[in-house]
Design a protein around this nucleic acid. Structure first.
Lengths: 148, 148
DNA sequence: CTGAAAAGCAATCAATACAGTTGCAGTTTA
DNA sequence: TAAACTGCAACTGTATTGATTGCTTTTCAG
């Protein structure tokens, strides 16, 4: 399954982060949609879990829009990941019907433990990076390229 | 999407591992299919990448079937994972069309780096465990349960 | 106070990856 | 030589999820 939700959510938060740096007004879903090449309604759907967790804040009404819920250096990519994929496990277990032997009886259990461990590894790697780091990295890539 | 290929491949290899321990004949795809509650043809499809990498060996003809390609203590779960999911990245990037600003220009690059790092973390966690460890763990879970 | 501009939300459509099946050709051995 | 396998290609079905549409509600500028 090609899941692009994390990628989308990350890009969205990066936009909000640079807007926060510039002190600009909240970004409307239409503005974000344009930058993401997506539909405003889709952007609002992506924002739901992010606002639920306080990573973003949406203000309604005219002149409304979205902005960061906290400073970018206090938002980790692990948090964004959790919002984007929700409770979906990293890997799905094969549909376990009645086990046919002693070994398979606990295969589901074993696999679940593996999944948890792998997810922790992923979150660990993402937890080391903040949104502010991401913005810095993008700028570095950009200026590095501009030199050529 | 919920990808159950790794789970299936792992179960398959566990079956082969216990068969190897018992010194029994190669397991036919029909036998494996029965234990996995699947179709023999589907099992053979799952076996293709595993045999390509030498983790399993399939012998054709009457009395044919599948067995481990190496001792179970020299097969890591990371190898099984790689076979099961192939080149599919852990996360897919959002379809990157023309970037609209300097920040997004390298977002794909940045995201790819994140993906690689996360994949390495996952493979690291899986690389610590061998198939033999898995069999031991399943037995432990089984006897632990039987005591109650 | 009123209209414009925004978010929020529900229903629905559409693309696609993947699980699963069928059928047959090739191979080996009892 | 026939049975019991694997190998392989083509196909179908379906669930997930990306994406759209069309509303209602909220807020603020003028």
């Amino acid at each position: 399954m090609l899941d692009i939700r994390f990628s989308r959510a990350l890009q969205l938060m990066l936009f909000l982060a640079v807007a926060a740096e510039n002190g600009s007004a909240p970004l409307s879903s239409a503005e974000l949609a344009h930058r993401l090449h997506a539909n405003p309604s889709l952007v609002r759907k992506l924002l739901v879990p992010l606002t639920d967790e306080g990573l973003a804040v949406c203000v309604k009404g005219r002149t409304g829009g979205a902005r960061l819920g906290r400073p970018a250096d206090r938002i980790t990519l692990a948090e964004i990941y959790r919002c984007a994929v929700g409770d979906k496990p990293l890997w799905a277990p094969s549909p376990g019907v009645e086990p046919v032997c002693a070994v398979t009886a606990h295969a589901g259990e074993y696999f679940a433990a593996l999944t948890v461990e792998a997810e922790e590894a992923v979150l660990g790697s993402l937890g080391d990076r903040t949104l502010a780091d991401g913005v810095r990295e993008l700028r570095r890539l950009d200026t590095g390229c501009a030199r050529h």
